[in-house]
Simulated scan of single mutants.
Amino acid sequence: MSSFREDQAAGLRRIMSGPRPRIVSVLSAMPGNAQARLIKNLGASIQDDGNNVIIVHATANTGDALTHYKLGNTPSLLEVANQRVPLNKAIKFSEQGYRISRLLPKQGSMQFQQAEGLQLDRIFGKLAQEYDIVLVDTVLNNNALPLQSLNDGEIVIQLTRDPESIKQAYILIKQVCSQLGRRSFGIVVSNASQAQAMLVFENIAQVARRFMQIDLEFMGAIPADEHLSRAEKLGRVVIDAFPMAQASAAFKALARKLDYRQAILAEIQRTSITL
């Protein structure tokens, strides 16, 4: 009995000393602005739970940086790495409460010289240490994420029930594993109920396990809720504009999945260990 309780206590300590910051990169198998919408609403939900959150836009699509994140002329982390501006100048405060930064300048490229990439990775790591959770809006670059810090962190893939989206999600998984080796991925299914999302997840998880011997983790479902579009037209996130909407509840549940404090509380309740 004593040994069992010691094992439980050790497990709890591992959770409490979990990776901080938690770096979560999101890849999307959906068209349009779905990726930015997911990240902004998730970032606001995590921030609302009492965490310090920063979103990093890490693609060469400067239109997204301007349209969805309103970064405008905000300097990039690459400019910080090249010692053109201080780090604090590359961070913008959002109306939703979280911070935002961009990896690349307006005319940036995802191709870095080795020394430049190492310095950029160091700057990103320095920035990340100031936050509890870092959400990264990114794409693959030569079958990997643009920084080693991102490759070492968590990867969440967003998809829908559409067969083409499921196919694209599986391709993303294969591409990453071809470059980085076997690893786990989180799965978020958008425009679906919980039951519909679980069916999609079970199917893609079974294929991934059978053909690549990798495990996927179901992170949650985001329902097809018109309140998301209505909030976006208002320039707001759904938990702020429509806090009682189904989408708001879904984002809050997803936020708790990414919050280590919630994992600690769940483990305390499960094991009945007093800290």
Rank of each mutant, 00 (worst) to 15 (best):
M16C: 10
M16K: 14
M16Y: 04
G18I: 05
R20F: 09
P21E: 07
P21Y: 06
R22N: 11
V24C: 06
S25Q: 01
S25Y: 10
V26H: 03
L27N: 11
L27Q: 10
A29K: 03
A29H: 02
A29L: 02
M30R: 14
P31K: 09
N33A: 15
N33C: 09
A34R: 09
A34I: 03
Q35N: 07
Q35F: 00
Q35H: 11
R37P: 00
R37S: 15
L38P: 08
L38R: 05
I39E: 07
K40Q: 11
N41E: 05
L42E: 01
L42P: 10
A44I: 05
S45V: 03
Q47W: 12
Q47C: 12
D48V: 01
D48T: 07
N51G: 10
N51F: 08
N51C: 08
N52P: 02
N52A: 13
N52L: 07
V53F: 06
I54R: 01
V56G: 00
H57W: 04
H57G: 04
A58H: 02
A60H: 10
A60V: 13
T62V: 01
G63R: 06
A65T: 11
A65Q: 12
L66T: 07
L66V: 04
L66C: 01
T67N: 09
K70C: 01
K70E: 06
K70A: 13
L71M: 12
N73A: 15
N73S: 15
P75A: 01
P75Q: 04
P75S: 03
L77Q: 11
L77N: 08
E79V: 10
V80T: 03
V80Q: 00
A81T: 09
A81L: 06
A81F: 10
N82C: 03
N82M: 12
P86S: 12
N88R: 10
K89I: 00
K89Y: 12
A90T: 07
A90G: 09
A90H: 12
I91Q: 06
I91E: 10
K92L: 14
K92Q: 15
K92C: 07
K92A: 14
F93K: 14
S94R: 08
S94T: 13
E95R: 13
E95A: 13
E95V: 05
Q96H: 15
Q96C: 08
G97V: 06
Y98I: 09
R99M: 11
I100S: 09
I100V: 15
S101I: 03
R102N: 14
L104Q: 09
